[in-house]
Design a protein around this nucleic acid. Structure first.
Lengths: 246, 246
DNA sequence: TTTGGCTGTTGATCTTCGTCAACGAAAACA
DNA sequence: TGTTTTCGTTGACGAAGATCAACAGCCAAA
C-alpha cells in the first residue's frame, strides 16, 4: 500500500509534516528506512469518547498518538473502572506481541492516530533492532510511570492525589509547549484533557471528592479555574508541596 | 572474567544446575552464546530484609532471581510506602538503560540472585537481539501486571484486595510447583513469602485491616491458616468470587 | 528462667471518603 | 426559542477503613 506511484521520496509526505516525527519511536529510523513503517501506516481519527477497540478485541493495531489524548482503562464486573494509562502525542498505544489487548482504550479528546497493523509492525521491529530498542526504552518508561502512579493510588490522600495529578498535567503541558518558544518561568495555564469522571477514574476517587478538592485548592489560592477544564496554577510550589515527594 | 582457564564448556557449571535456566530470559540464548552472559555473572545472596540497593543508588546491576522473593517499593517523604512489584524466581530485577534505579528493592525472603553488571549486560543485549526481545516481552508483561494491580489499588475494597492477593499468590505457588509432578486439582496449600506489613504495603491497606480480612476469610471457611504464613485455600471458587473479575 | 523484640490479632474510636440528593451552568438538540 | 442532556458543584449523612491501644505467641539473647 504505497501512497503514490512515483519513485519513493525520502519521506512519506505525511511523515514530513508529522508533528511527532522527531519524538515518537519512529524517530530512530533513518529517512531511507522510514518507508518500512510509512508503507504500512494508516492515519485514523477518533472522536472524544470513541473506543479504540472493544473488550476482548484482538490486538489488531499498534499506533502512535499524533494529536489528542487516549486513556487506557480496566473495568471490574460491576462497572467500577480505573484508568491505568494516559497517552499523549508521540506515545505508543497497543500491545505488541500479544493476541489480545489487556485494557480498554478510548479517545479522551478528539484524537489522530498513526496506525500500523500489528503483525506487520512486529515484522518491522524484527528487521530494525534499533526500533525494537526504542520500543523497549519506551516500555521501561511506561513501567516506571505506572509504578509512580501506584504509590499515589495506594498511599496518597485524596488531596495529595488531586494535587499530584494537577502537578503532573501542568508538567506535561509545559513539555509539549516547549516547541513554541515560551519562557517556562511563566505561571502555567493549561487545559485538562479529562472530565471529572475521568480524573476520578484516574485517581481511584469519586467525582464528588475530586470536585471538593478542586474547590479547596481554589479557596487556598493554589489554582484558579478559568473554566472547569482550564486551570491556572497560581502557586506551583504549594501544589508540589501538597502533592508530596514524587 | 572467565571462570576457568580450560576451553569453554558448553555451559558454565553454575548454569548447568541453575533452576531457572529454562525459564528466565537467558533461556533464549543458545548454549554456545550463553557464555556471553555467564562470563559476566556473579551470584549473590541476600538475607530477608536486606536491601538490594539504596535510595538514590546508581543502577549498578541487572539480576535474575534464582531463588526467593524480591519486593520493589516506593516511599513518600513521611515514610508511607507501597510495594509496586514482587519478583519471583526467573524474574528480572534492575532497571536497564537508566542511570538510576526508580524504586527501592529488598529481599522479602532469603534470596539468591544471578547478577550482571549493568553496562556489560546492556552490551550483551546489543549483541543479541533475541535476548533484548526477550527482555521486551518480559517488560511488556510486567507492565500488564502493574496495570492489573492498579485497578485493585484504586477500585477494590479491602476484602477484594486481600482475596485477590491470596488468589494470585496461590496461582503463583501452583505454577512454581508444576515442576514437581503434583495433581493441580488439589486444594492449594502454600506459604506466603510476605509479612503482614508487606501485604499491607502491597495492597495499600494497614496491617490491621489485612489481619481482619484474613480472620473473616477464616471464619467464612474460605481459607485455613496452618500458621500465620501458611495458607490452605479450602474454597478456591469462593476466593475467586470474592476477588472480583481479574 | 526472664527479658525484650517481632509478628499477628482484636477491640474501641475517629476520620476520610463514598453515597445520595439537589441544583446550576453550559452544551446539544429540536 | 425552549428542552434535554451533560458536566460540575455543594450539602447531609453513613460506612469503610485508619488510628490508637492492648495483648498473645514465638523466638533469641541474657
Amino acid at each position: 500500500m504505497v501512497t503514490s506511484p512515483e519513485l519513493a521520496p525520502v519521506f512519506d509526505r505525511r511523515c514530513e509534516t508529522c508533528p511527532v516525527r522527531h519524538h515518537a519511536i519512529c524517530s530512530v529510523l533513518e529517512n531511507q528506512h522510514c518507508h518500512d513503517l510509512s508503507d504500512i501506516m494508516v492515519h485514523k481519527h477518533f472522536q472524544r469518547g470513541q473506543a479504540l477497540w472493544g473488550e476482548e478485541d484482538d490486538a489488531e493495531f499498534i499506533a502512535i498518538v499524533v494529536t489528542g489524548t487516549v486513556k487506557l482503562f480496566k473495568m471490574l464486573s460491576d462497572g467500577r473502572q480505573q484508568i491505568v494509562g494516559l497517552l499523549f502525542p508521540s506515545d505508543c498505544v497497543g500491545r505488541a506481541f500479544s493476541e489480545t489487548q489487556q485494557t480498554f482504550a478510548e479517545a479522551a479528546t478528539d484524537t489522530e492516530l498513526c496506525c500500523f497493523p500489528r503483525r506487520q509492525f512486529e515484522q518491522v521491529l524484527k528487521q530494525h533492532p534499533d526500533l525494537e530498542h526504542a520500543l523497549l526504552e519506551k516500555t521501561l518508561n511506561d513501567l516506571d510511570n505506572a509504578r509512580n502512579w501506584m504509590i499515589g493510588l495506594g498511599r496518597k490522600t485524596a488531596g495529595e492525589k488531586v494535587a499530584s495529578f494537577l502537578s503532573e498535567m501542568a508538567r506535561k503541558s509545559e513539555l509539549t509547549k516547549c516547541n513554541q518558544h515560551r519562557p517556562p518561568a511563566n505561571v502555567p495555564i493549561f487545559m485538562l484533557p479529562l472530565t471529572r469522571v475521568d480524573i476520578a477514574d484516574c485517581l481511584g476517587l469519586t467525582i464528588e471528592t475530586v470536585s471538593r478538592n478542586f474547590t479547596k485548592l481554589r479557596a487556598d489560592g493554589v489554582i484558579k479555574s478559568v473554566d472547569a477544564r482550564t486551570i491556572e496554577v497560581c502557586d506551583p510550589e504549594a501544589l508540589a508541596r501538597l502533592a508530596e515527594a514524587e
